[in-house]
Structures are given as structure tokens and as C-alpha cells.
Design a protein around this nucleic acid. Sequence first.
DNA 1: TAGCTATAGTTGCCCAAGCAGTCGTTGGGC
DNA 2: GCCCAACGACTGCTTGGGCAACTATAGCTA
Lengths: 170, 170
Amino acid sequence: MNQNVFDDPRITAVGLLVEAHAGLSARFAAQFDEHGLSPVEFEVLTRLARSPGNQLRMTDLAAQTSLSTSGVTRVVDRMERDGLLTRRACPSDRRSSYAVVTASGMQRLDETLPGHLRIIEQWFTGQLEPEALRALLDGLRRVRDAVHPGATAGSAGSAPAEDEAVAARH
Amino acid sequence: MNQNVFDDPRITAVGLLVEAHAGLSARFAAQFDEHGLSPVEFEVLTRLARSPGNQLRMTDLAAQTSLSTSGVTRVVDRMERDGLLTRRACPSDRRSSYAVVTASGMQRLDETLPGHLRIIEQWFTGQLEPEALRALLDGLRRVRDAVHPGATAGSAGSAPAEDEAVAARH
DNA sequence: TAGCTATAGTTGCCCAAGCAGTCGTTGGGC
DNA sequence: GCCCAACGACTGCTTGGGCAACTATAGCTA
């Protein structure tokens, strides 16, 4: 077999993206863990916290996260059990329910966020000069726009503001 | 709560990285699936195929992939069942065994790789002019070097050729 | 208003993977 | 040569998450 295939610059490029992502994710996970949160829980918490009223319908939450609706049901189960979230009935549609961040949940998030930002700074954004960082982010944005975050977010319809979120604005 | 925290450029930066990665991963997974492979299986196959003799000891394979040793045991189980791999006893150390790619495994890989490269080209490298791509990869490399892929790979010792790619060095 | 279809959420079942414990093997110290 | 700590692989147990089936509600159409 053509051994050189694996030296193809395209393979290398993907390798870099994957490794950078994996490395950062590991750092994040370790810090979340210090605050008793899993990566998904942190994601859920931020998504809710940035939404009006600190709440979101289960489906919308699923659309904004990396989870399926059944996945959301279970994460919310756990987080409700841990007191970070509550379910609240939707007055206008009895099928729907909101996941709402509790005071305790907000507090947990407040405790976690500063460290999280520090880690991003330390291992990601702070690694590059402003100009190089800008170039990196521009590139990522173009790739992101191409592959469409639809895979992850793409909640068509009711999602506010075209989504975005852990995403990008522009 | 300070709503603006979520507009922090650091959060946005991470969002871009995560979404670009997730979007690409989804495309890859879909194409792998067309060839009856999961992402892990593809990773295992490439790692072995690029190693001398198309083989690697279980532990080294684990070190080069995103899996634990027990994870490797099971993936290799499945792939052996499917005829893509075989286990071979290590003559010099009876504790170790090699995972070896079979002819059928190599063929599967050959069928899969061209499409994979095409997808990388189409959604990633081909999205940017050469200069912008170079800048993106430089940035990724610096971040990767900082977070050390050690978290994912870190196979000290016997790993061949300093590797690269989805891997890590020293 | 009766009926039909689409939607929101939950649950049963399954699978993939990690951790920790086990067993056999090895190699160094003496 | 003997002993013991370290190592390589595998297995039991548990956890997280997806898909598909199911229930209840909405809302359109006639």
C-alpha cells in the first residue's frame, strides 16, 4: 500500500484540528470536573443561562447542544436531581416543558466560568499573537460556515437568533 | 448574571473550534459509514496501516488512538470478528500480541481513503486559499503543541517515526 | 366538532467505552 | 536461580447516549 498516503497534507491538517480539539477538551473537562460538572452539563448550563429567563424548552435545548432529545431528557433528569435545574410546565403548550436554571445552578456556573475563561486564554487564545489568532479564527469560521453547524446546532425554526452560541456571530 | 460573559471572544473562539470539528467529524462519519466503518475503526485501520508490517502491539495502538487499552481490546475484537484484523502472538514477549491488518482490512481502507481525502478537500482544506490555510494550520499547530496531544496519544517509546497526525510526539 | 397528522417529551433496549480488578509474563536485584 | 514489582491483555461492572416505540397534546381540515 502506498505508505505516503498518510503523509498527505490533508491528513495532517485533519490531525492538527482533531488533536488541538482533543487537547483543549481534555483541559476543559478537568476544570469542569473540579466543579462537579461534566462537559455536557456545562454546555447545558451555559445554553440555558444565555437564554431569556434562563430557560429553554427541552427540544430547543437539544437543538442547541450536541445531544438528541432523549439525551436531553436524561441530562436534565440528572441535573434536576442535583438541584442545578428544574422543569417548568409551559403554559401555552401542555406538551412542552422548560428546563430552568436554579439559583444553585447559576451559582455553580459562576464558580466555573472564570476558570474556564482562564484556561481558554492560557492554552488557546493566549498562545498566539493577535494577528495570528485572527487568522486562525477566520479560517475556522470559514470551515465552520461550510460544514454548517447544522450538524450540531442547526435548530431550524424556533431557535432564537439563528443560533450561534458557542458559535459565532458576525 | 452578566449576560455579556457569553459574548466573550474567548468563548466564541472555542465555539468555532468545536463547531468546525463537530461538522467535519459528522461528514467523515457519514462517509466511513458508507464503507461499513465507524470513526474508531477507521482510526485503528490507519494507525496500523501506517506502521511497519501493518501491525502494532495492543498497548501501542491504544497509545496512538483515542482509546484506553480495554477499549482497544474490544474494537479489535469486533474488527477481528469482521475479518479486518487478526491478532498475532508476539514472539519475543508472550504477554504482548499484535493487531495486524488483514488483506480484507487493507482493501477496506483502500476503498475508504480516496473518498475521505475528497471530503477533507471539499469541506476543509479546499475552503481556504493556500495562504489562509497555512495560517490556520500554523495556528492549530501552535495550540496543539501547547496542549500536548499527550492527552490523547502520548505513546512513549516504541511508537515509530515520531508519528504525527492524529498523534503526538515525545 | 370529529378526525387525522404532526409534535414534545419520555422510556425500553442496546451498544460503546472507561475503570478497576485479574491473570499470566517478564526482568531486575540480590 | 529466586523473588517481586511492573507490565500487557482481558473481563465485569457501570455509565452515558442514541434510536425507536409510545403517550399526550396541538392544530388543521372538512
